[in-house]
Design a protein around this nucleic acid. Structure first.
Lengths: 266, 266
DNA sequence: TCAATAAGCTGGCTCAAGCCTGTTGACTGC
DNA sequence: GCAGTCAACAGGCTTGAGCCAGCTTATTGA
């Protein structure tokens, strides 16, 4: 890329009326989008950018910050700033509860990981009887003030990265006294196998999808870098009688995962 | 909220080992989450925070920046910093192409706006014959290098806010010579009415959903403030013969819109 | 040969100061 | 009564300096 001649010192804006930090960011952005700086390549250091543009280091730093917040660039302490290398997305499919995966031995999540050449696994964080949030109580038709639900908390990993944080609520009237209390689900078809044995066959699913920035906790749990949003998915399982009998919230890193729906138009 | 006693000057970290900017941010965050600072309420000014914590103004500023990037706070030039007041989300439903809305006179988007007490409308930015991006050409089965598609570009508004930026591609072999070239679609059932007349009845839809930070352009188009992601939805319409005949990309502000799917489990 | 060390790079954070632009409300004068 | 003006205060951006912490590599010494 080409750097500008040093302009007059202390000038807040250059002749084109652009603020210095924006100008540096714009130039770098263009270089990235034009492919002059390839994915994974190192950008000039903050001190070098500052010198080339005749600005203070803080100004070059501000430019980098803008690019990082936009997710264009990955900053690594002590190493440098690198053009972001997008990772292939794992796709959570709408067919993940389909019976067609029965007997395959692999859950849809693990299948998808395998497809992307990664090793998937999940970790049980906690299983307990507890009180549902109001929203969950409403949807499941259980009392909010009591320990009316089984709560399972999981983390899904793809390779060495945590990608989903998952919380599941099931009415205690359904889950009580079943294998749902164990970390290892004692049923060949997993959680939903047990729920079917209790008389609830998933006939419909309702899902809402929103995106937002992670909370401080989620940032830690999912090892999210700055400028990465999370997808929040609320899934409700509806049985053959129209009853909502299970509810799951997924918090997903948007840099590593996406959603896929393949559905009939009614 | 309670402010700390001024600690020794020039200390990089306070006794608890927390950086000053993080400490200010943490205190403010806790005050917000505890409800001490209610939604819409003004935070202390940067200069005031700096004085109370015995830091430089830039440090208080950094704290505010952290909160703004997390979407907890809205910064208004000249006015102050305010606790973010979440707006009700417009939900784009998976049933939006359903025939059940036929004859209602309102499109699903306008219905959803009305439900939230807002006035919805949309604006046609451009309609032209053009070249599809490779991804689109692949999916629609048209040549990538030629002007093989009709491209329509729209913006959807809810009240005074732009919420969706929408691009639609339709093979020219289908769209050519139809009312799809007009801004006002001359068909009571809209675009999909015309496509049905050409022999394509939507039988399935495929959608992929991802989240990311907006590009500079999108930030402008959608009037997005810092710390707000966009949802990117790629929709493919599949007809009764399994042919993909229409493709739409939605770029949606995640602070004002979400998605909703209500689907059978197959 | 190999491990410990140190130099020299990277970004991370802060300071104190200055000048800019946008907003508001009180004051002024018609 | 009302419009124009202006001061006070808000955030926006920059400077140039300093020190800290993480990474890499070349050097050193056992």
């Amino acid at each position: 890329m080409v750097y500008p001649a040093r302009v007059n010192e202390h000038a807040a804006v250059d002749p084109a009326g652009i603020l210095p930090s924006r100008r540096i960011a714009r130039d770098l952005r263009q270089a990235i989008e034009a492919g002059e700086l390839a994915a994974g390549q190192r950008l000039p250091s903050e001190r070098e950018l500052a010198a080339r543009y005749g600005t203070a280091r803080n100004t070059a730093r501000e430019a980098i910050r803008l690019l990082a917040a936009a997710g264009l660039v990955d900053v690594e302490h002590g190493r440098g700033v690198f053009v972001h290398r997008p990772a292939p997305l794992l796709r959570l499919g709408s067919d993940r509860y389909s019976r067609c995966y029965r007997g395959a031995g692999l859950s849809p999540f693990l299948l998808e990981c395998a497809k992307q050449g990664m090793t998937g696994r999940f970790e049980v964080l906690s299983i307990e009887r507890g009180r549902p949030p109001e929203k969950v109580a409403d949807e499941l038709g259980v009392p909010a003030g009591q320990e009316s639900v089984l709560i399972r908390e999981n983390v899904f990993w793809a390779g060495t990265s945590p990608v989903h944080r998952v919380t599941t609520w099931i009415p205690w009237t359904i889950a009580g006294g079943t294998g749902l209390l164990e970390a290892e689900i004692p049923h060949p078809y997993g959680i939903h196998g047990i729920l079917e044995d209790r008389g609830h066959v998933m006939t419909r699913q309702r899902e809402t999808v929103t995106a937002r920035m992670p909370t401080t906790q989620e940032e830690g749990h999912l090892q999210i870098r700055a400028g990465v949003a999370v997808l929040e998915v609320w899934h409700t399982s509806i049985d053959q009688h129209g009853i909502a009998y299970e509810l799951t919230r997924f918090v997903m890193r948007s840099d590593l995962t996406g959603l896929h729906y393949d559905i009939p138009v009614e």
